[in-house]
Amino acid sequence: MSDSLITKKAIAAALKQVCREKPFDKISIADITAVCGLNRQTFYYHFQDKYELLSWIYYNENFSKITEDITFDNWDQKILEMLQIMEKEKWFYVNTLKEQEHTFESYLFEMAKALFSEAIARLDENNHLNDMEREFDAEFYAYGICGVIVSWTQSGMRIKPEVVAEHLRSLAKDTERIGYIRSQGII
């Protein structure tokens, strides 16, 4: 592991620790560097600000892991993995999503939209939908998943990740059945 990556991980761990004590919007760079024992200059060498650090954590410690080899056939397991990662670091995600939900949501939205675009194309083998309809449908389902996960987090993750993932999988399966019925001209 490179020195730069080790430093970034130390800074990330410091932010997570400070998030247990302070709301994200009240955290300063001085708070973060005091915990990891680095100076401000080192922080700014690696990150422009705490928002870039937050984005780096979301992507490198969660989204990059779950988007690797994700398909429509295994997406529910990948969502479960993501929810479990979030639950393990509950205070960090609850705290940061309260203040910065759009950073997290934009990553999640892009991933979900790509998956649903793939699924809709697969289900619409007779090409009943035009490109605009496919895009609209994919965005609809992506926003739904994002909304559920953000709401789950902001409400304190009271429901187990396995239950949330199963509900999302069940909804997708129902949608898949409706899509198949529609593609056959039954409805």
Rank of each mutant, 00 (worst) to 15 (best):
171 L>D: 05
77 Q>L: 14
137 D>S: 14
187 I>W: 03
136 F>C: 10
170 S>F: 14
124 D>N: 12
93 Y>D: 10
35 V>Y: 02
82 M>F: 05
104 F>A: 06
32 I>R: 05
69 D>G: 06
46 H>T: 00
125 E>P: 00
184 Q>M: 14
55 S>I: 01
32 I>T: 08
64 S>E: 11
143 Y>S: 14
138 A>E: 08
103 T>Y: 13
112 A>S: 15
175 T>H: 11
132 M>G: 10
15 L>R: 03
36 C>N: 08
55 S>F: 00
142 A>E: 08
111 M>I: 15
42 T>L: 01
92 F>H: 06
69 D>T: 02
133 E>S: 14
154 Q>K: 15
18 V>T: 05
151 S>P: 06
86 M>R: 09
13 A>M: 07
6 I>G: 01
131 D>K: 09
152 W>P: 06
19 C>N: 03
72 F>C: 09
180 Y>G: 00
167 H>I: 13
77 Q>R: 13
141 Y>L: 15
40 R>M: 03
156 G>E: 07
70 I>F: 06
74 N>G: 07
77 Q>F: 09
120 I>S: 04
156 G>W: 03
177 R>Q: 09
124 D>G: 03
184 Q>G: 11
119 A>H: 01
183 S>Y: 00
121 A>L: 13
17 Q>V: 06
137 D>P: 01
104 F>I: 03
3 D>V: 00
96 T>N: 09
18 V>W: 02
103 T>R: 12
94 V>S: 04
48 Q>Y: 12
173 K>M: 10
58 Y>S: 02
163 V>R: 13
114 A>D: 12
7 T>N: 06
4 S>E: 03
61 E>V: 01
